[in-house]
Write a protein that binds this DNA or RNA. Sequence first.
DNA 1: CGCGATTTGTGCACGCCTTCACAAGCGCCT
DNA 2: AGGCGCTTGTGAAGGCGTGCACAAATCGCG
Lengths: 252, 252
Amino acid sequence: MSQQRHGSTPGEAGGVPAFPDLPEATIARLPEYLRALHHLAETGAETVSSEGLAAAAGVNSAKLRKDLSHLGSYGTRGVGYDVSLLVAQIEYILGLDENRAVCLVGVGNLGHALAGYAGFASRGFRVVALFDTDPRKVGEQINGLTVRHIDDLERIAAEESIAIGVIATPPGTAQTVADALVAAGVTSILNFAPGVLSVPSNVDVRKVDLAIELQILSFHEHRKASLTALPGGRSAAASPDKLPDNQKAVGS
Amino acid sequence: MSQQRHGSTPGEAGGVPAFPDLPEATIARLPEYLRALHHLAETGAETVSSEGLAAAAGVNSAKLRKDLSHLGSYGTRGVGYDVSLLVAQIEYILGLDENRAVCLVGVGNLGHALAGYAGFASRGFRVVALFDTDPRKVGEQINGLTVRHIDDLERIAAEESIAIGVIATPPGTAQTVADALVAAGVTSILNFAPGVLSVPSNVDVRKVDLAIELQILSFHEHRKASLTALPGGRSAAASPDKLPDNQKAVGS
DNA sequence: CGCGATTTGTGCACGCCTTCACAAGCGCCT
DNA sequence: AGGCGCTTGTGAAGGCGTGCACAAATCGCG
Ligand SMILES: NC(=O)c1ccc[n+]([C@@H]2O[C@H](COP(=O)([O-])OP(=O)(O)OC[C@H]3O[C@@H](n4cnc5c(N)ncnc54)[C@H](O)[C@@H]3O)[C@@H](O)[C@H]2O)c1
Ligand SMILES: NC(=O)c1ccc[n+]([C@@H]2O[C@H](COP(=O)([O-])OP(=O)(O)OC[C@H]3O[C@@H](n4cnc5c(N)ncnc54)[C@H](O)[C@@H]3O)[C@@H](O)[C@H]2O)c1
């Protein structure tokens, strides 16, 4: 896609793993590997083979090995990967050891659910602030956090060093909120409102759109239906796949 | 306007547009085009240029044209695309004219928000049933729907011809729920629980994982930080991009 | 100490996707 | 009618990602 291209930086010493520029597709899969590894660690496993980890993460083992090789991983031939070492490696690469501060804007239906979600904390993030404009919402306590007015965004973002913002407001106000986040120094945005955000090139935006996911599924339903309706179309037995075709990475 | 190439099924007559097999990347973008088109239609526009629509959808105009060409679209050179015609085309391809029935399993924090989400209905779907196992939840009314016990899934799914199921239960029960959905005849699943689902090959699964999205953003934060810290790294001015790099498609 | 079993890391080929660049088509204006 | 400007549709090229297949490395055991 766009940025990387610090290509070499040959002045970097060989000891510390510097900063590899991984393929987008790879970094999109690392979180899945990480989750699988945590699960394995809980079961007491100390090492995993690429085959085993790949199965747990739902990918091809060759792909997994190539992904891990990109981050100069330490596996042992004949044995596999050291689980805790690999966890540490991936967490480092993803920057999860920094326990990043996240703020959430829009405490409505969806925002309320997100604010109470335990998955944030357990996966390396701290929700440190909630914002809304609705005077009935401002002041409300959710999960130990007080909902603030969005006018306080800039001040609080600076105080808490917030780098990531989540937008859960109606579509019409999403761009305004995004602008406010950017002005407050946020450089990564996760957007739940349908629509395209325009932000400076140094800001990353990822989007989650429920309806899009459903529509993609709907397409496949449509396709499946038209296949079985066709005389030439082989029935279900025709599918020669190995994996239940998902979104690739995403990247989606 | 030739448009053939739905590969096989040569017995197909030329009149009806048959069923083109679109690239995955293309179908992942169609919903975004559709949303942009609806927005344009509201503003009264009757036609759009590929440039204009591409901007509204946040993609490259060449990519948009190629995508539309795949579905044998009706554009007019020198003029652009007829908005309402294109809307109809895309809705047909995505199968949205069938107003598909969707069920939601797991009416907790997240499920409650989803059940009340208006975006389902406005984008081509009907939420026709809610399921849970918690006796305190079963019987509850949400948005005009009664929460049913999951044991009723099979019966209701058959009655309502439910083809799409949404999973919003804890991760530990997601596989069980998926199995139940499959047994009930559901062939498309949208999964919000972290983890990998295993399903028959004729069932499509898409996954939405908040934490993964955040972790990908975290990676980019990490990368950006290490760039500015590096002596050789050009500052923000170095980025030569045109679009704020997002997840691709696909991919999710 | 050597051998075989096992598993990683990767060179390579292939296919998909993206992007450029431009000819062909269309409407409008003169 | 003719020409001109605009926009689509697409051929071609390049890049990226995937998966195969295998050589290299490591361990355990005899
Ligand atoms: N509810 C869902 O399940 C769901 C699912 C997918 C996507 N979404 C999307 O997520 C967004 C939120 O959905 P919702 O159902 O929670 O809507 P909602 O109306 O319940 O909540 C929106 C909240 O945003 C607040 N808000 C409005 N403008 C604001 C501003 N400028 N700054 C700060 N806060 C502001 C409102 O006061 C309200 O509390 C919408 O864009 C929706 O399309 C929702
Ligand atoms: N809350 C969020 O914002 C959020 C965000 C991202 C992902 N998730 C994921 O979504 C899922 C749901 O999250 P939540 O916060 O709503 O959890 P929750 O505990 O609030 O809700 C889970 C619901 O599922 C029901 N349930 C449990 N087992 C069931 C079964 N076998 N059949 C039917 N229903 C069953 C429970 O009774 C409960 O009502 C989790 O997997 C979570 O990781 C949640």
